[in-house]
Amino acid sequence: MQSRFRSDRRLTARMGVTLFLLGLLYVAFMAALIVLLKSWILVVVIAAVLLGCQYWFSDRIALFAMHGRVVEREEYPELHGVIDRLCAVADMPKPVVAVSQMEMPNAFATGRNPNNAVICVTTGLLRRLDRSELEGVLAHELSHVAHKDVAVITVASFLGVIAGLMVRFAFYSSMFRGRKDQNTLAVFAAVLGISAAVYALSFLLIRALSRYRELAADRSAALLTGRPSALASALTKVTGDIARIPSKDLRTAQAFNAFYFTPALGSEPGLARLFSTHPPLEQRLDQLGRISAELGEAATPGKA
């Protein structure tokens, strides 16, 4: 079922190009592994198992890691009420609602499709945001669900997982078999080199894809709610509060930055932004400011 979330064509085109490049990289990598390892069955089986696990169990893994707990309407009526309203406006199925007892103010969406999705918010976020700000954040997360961003990122990141696995496979295979001839060492070096290069390239492409999808989700959320200023306020508030949380409390959360509303770390200037899963706060606020101006020109009285 098509939701009413609006998307940005330029951002969609960028995500499409990035996915195309990842696909080319994936095909080249798998072909090289088949030639070098001379066992396409092994490569295909490993690839299928890992992809299946990531695709089917990403929601459970994320909830377990972030101590999320599914909550009913009686426990969090306001949270359920906001999600109910947004889902009705967006014409999409309601996801499972979960809450994580964490001081870090954040939220994330996970699940392979809109019919099997979970939205989780932390108690730190619920305490800090007013209703309109919370609505903006939840609309952002619902946009990820509607556009199947979690599935896209899961599949895209799969290539990096395979690359890392092949490095370990080549290393332990040569070590335990005790084969030290030149051909074995040459194959090991080739697999190691190709895998390292593929991991580095896929890492950068996935980060770029993640940044594009965050901008697209911001835009979709702002247009759905009609209140980009509320989303901008939530972004500013949450980013500032996260920066004040001790680093030791963020270590577990950082592994799931790609799923979060805003990353669990501070500002990253210069080249470090290439490795970030989210665009800079300034860029997100600038986009929301432009959308606010657009809506101000086109808005009609009483529009939410």
Rank of each mutant, 00 (worst) to 15 (best):
G160C: 04
L125V: 08
A151V: 06
V167S: 01
S157N: 15
K180S: 10
V155G: 05
G124C: 00
E103M: 06
L185I: 13
A186I: 14
M104T: 15
G136M: 14
S174G: 01
V150D: 06
I162V: 15
V191N: 07
G124N: 05
A117T: 05
L192A: 06
L134S: 11
G178L: 05
V155F: 05
F158Q: 14
V150W: 00
M102S: 13
T154F: 00
G164V: 11
L204H: 06
R179C: 09
S157F: 12
L201T: 14
F203E: 12
L142Q: 10
Y172A: 11
A151H: 00
H144P: 06
F176H: 08
N106P: 02
G164N: 03
G193P: 03
T184S: 12
F158W: 12
S174K: 03
F169I: 15
A163W: 04
S173G: 15
D130W: 04
M102W: 12
S173D: 14
V137T: 08
V167P: 00
H140Q: 09
A146V: 12
A163T: 08
S202T: 10
L142A: 07
G124V: 11
A197W: 00
H144Y: 13
M102I: 11
R168N: 05
A196H: 00
R177A: 10
F108H: 06
A186P: 00
V145N: 02
R128V: 08
V121G: 00
G178M: 13
M102Y: 09
A117H: 05
M175F: 15
Q182N: 11
F171M: 13
L138C: 09
R128T: 04
T110A: 05
R177Y: 09
P105S: 09
V145F: 13
V121L: 07
R179I: 15
G164S: 05
T154M: 15
A139L: 08
N116F: 02
P114S: 04
S174H: 06
L201E: 08
A200Y: 04
L134Q: 06
E141L: 09
A189W: 14
S143D: 07
I153S: 05
G164I: 10
A189R: 04
S195T: 12
L129A: 09
G111Q: 08
V145P: 04
G160M: 13
A197G: 01
L201V: 15
I194T: 06
F171S: 03
E141K: 05
T110H: 00
K148Y: 12
L126G: 02
I119Q: 01
Y199D: 10
F188A: 06
L205H: 05
I119F: 01
H144V: 12
V150R: 04
L125S: 06
A163S: 13
V191E: 12
L205F: 13
H147S: 13
I194H: 01
F203Y: 09
V198S: 04
N115K: 10
E141H: 07
G164E: 09
V99P: 00
N116Y: 02
